[in-house]
Write a protein that binds this DNA or RNA. Structure first.
Lengths: 333, 333
DNA sequence: CTGAAAGCGCTTACAG
DNA sequence: CTGAAAGCGCTTACAG
């Protein structure tokens, strides 16, 4: 690798001047610039990033931590964030936190040590308080996706999960359902709690009593959905619909129902949440709440870069999910 | 951020000694080590990576470029590679090349500039020759996933795509099909060509004439599969089965067939390739070739780290796809 | 418009 | 076992 010194020698200028043209500094004579550029080209020079980072304390890099590197939900998010960040001239480094405290912290430490210019976090296990402490401790700007921490409101891009839960439940009620079960996500996650809350609220508004026998906690995975469905069925309560807190669990629930000879949606309606791509393909097509995760990613990317550059940004912080009606819910008279 | 100098002052040693304990150098008195460690803890010291990289020319980081940050196929790959790399004490930086030459090169340059200790590449647009040149130009070790470049054989983790194409076609033939259409991937990609080659070979072996009218080039996307299917149908040739070069195109083909009132698999059998998760959920369940992309990722991760550390590694370079029979292919008498 | 020089925070022979 | 010092490749006031 050629260094700045070799370039300066070849171009017959000081390293300072080379540095200036590399960084687009105005105050260099046109003719000098050309000489330097020629030398750079000839030596195939590319600046050493570590040296640069050491000298400037910046890296032109945005760090992101997501739950997993696989999975359609995070895939969309990563994709959009990368597009945006790249368009703004920065690079993205993604790491995964696997939804557990240790890995999430590791990932953050790693990125901070890498001196990223901003951090985009989609974390579950780390508490609101810890996030707040983190934001105090470091001067690296932090953007929170899919999460609302009041103290950090200006850095949150969040979804109204309660609204989603309510809308979906209202739809089921409008279809004539009264005995509506609910498979929640892990209740230590705020989005799970919010979705459940929306469900309760819709029930309330419709004058339907909330019944704990119809609610079971799942884990946001497909097998977990099957398990939850099984537990629900064993309770032997009357029910005509089940609302699942995410699509994956809905798949599991449908699979289990079918395996027990229960027709979906004829005998049992099932709804999901997230609207991941697969849900359009599954049979029956899944009725679910669409989460505009891509758009949220766009905002997160833009906000992160703006914060890194200490620029203001008109951020859309709040997003609403919307109902997607397909075939997994049928009317109940 | 505390620096090594502050730690050295607090612990009353030289910075060299602090560096030694940070890097686990043996030749430091036990008692000194403790003093240093205490000082590090007290100051919440974490070494500056840029400085370290500058001094050592190493970063403990493996770079990877994939086609896209979204999508189930790459998701599995990234996931497994990260697991492996992390278990070996390194970090992973993933970037996407979007299947086009510019972005792929950008991504590689970015990672090289970041001085990653090794590179794992899943690229499509960059030619074999360019890859070879790249490997000559840089001393950063390169691992190629899902690709076989003869000159770089020792660094390739590849799949026998021809075998897969053959196996799948043989299965269709065994089910009694004779008029088997084929929707290929983009033919500038070697895996597409290999899969097609396998198809031709199976036909040959069975004494069935290859007919260009039954072959159409797709683009590996779902809408592309629909388009290809439409073109195929318009040709109005007798056909009872269509082999798609990946699962996504199979979805598209099935969707289009259904929309035209053609029952799958009753009137038309459809097979895919890749066995992405969705294929188990779709209706009818997709018969396809399973690609052990996760296992390939494990090998790629291990090999990359081994090369970075100049250690030998017993790599499994070659993988075979395997047939997964579900419901999208029915027998033809 | 350009250069000399200090400094960023670490590592690593070299001495001792 | 430990320290002084050079060096990694850049950037950035400061002069001129």
């Amino acid at each position: 690798m050629a260094t700045i010194k070799e370039v300066s020698r070849l171009a017959n200028v000081s390293v300072a001047t080379v540095s200036r043209v590399v960084n687009g500094n105005k105050w260099v004579a046109e003719e000098t610039q050309e000489r330097v550029r020629a030398a750079m080209a000839q030596l195939d020079y590319t600046p050493n990033n570590a040296a640069r980072a050491l000298a400037t304390n910046k890296t032109d890099t945005i760090g992101m931590v997501v739950g997993d590197l696989s999975g359609p939900f995070y895939g969309d998010l990563m994709y959009q964030v990368e597009q945006e960040v790249r368009a703004l001239g920065k690079h993205l480094i993604v790491t995964s936190g696997h939804g557990n405290w240790d890995d999430e912290n590791d990932a953050i430490e790693f990125l901070l040590q890498r001196q990223v210019d901003a951090l985009i976090l989609h974390v579950d296990a780390i508490s609101d308080e810890e996030l707040f402490t983190l934001s105090q401790r470091t001067d690296c700007p932090i953007v929170l996706v899919n999460r609302f921490v009041p103290e950090l409101a200006a850095q949150c891009i969040h979804l109204d999960n309660e609204l989603g839960g309510r809308l979906l439940t209202e739809y089921l009620i409008a279809q004539g359902h009264r005995n509506i079960a609910c498979i929640t996500g892990p209740l230590y996650k705020s989005d799970s709690r919010d979705r459940l809350q929306g469900y309760r609220q819709a029930l309330d508004n419709a004058g339907i009593a909330y019944r704990a026998e119809l609610v079971v906690e799942g884990d946001y995975t497909e097998p977990g959905g099957s398990l939850a469905m099984e537990r629900l069925l064993r309770r032997d309560q009357p029910m005509t619909a089940v609302l699942c807190s995410n699509d994956l669990m809905a798949y599991g629930a449908i699979r289990l129902a079918k395996s027990q000879g229960i027709a979906v949606p004829k005998q049992l309606s099932v709804a999901g949440y997230d609207n991941i791509v697969m849900s359009a393909y599954i049979e029956p097509g899944l009725t679910t709440m669409h989460v505009p995760i891509g758009q949220m990613g766009v905002q997160a990317g833009q906000l992160a870069v703006a914060l890194a550059e200490k620029r203001p940004h008109a951020t859309q912080h709040h997003f609403d999910p919307s109902l997607v009606v397909r075939e997994s819910v049928s009317p109940q008279k």
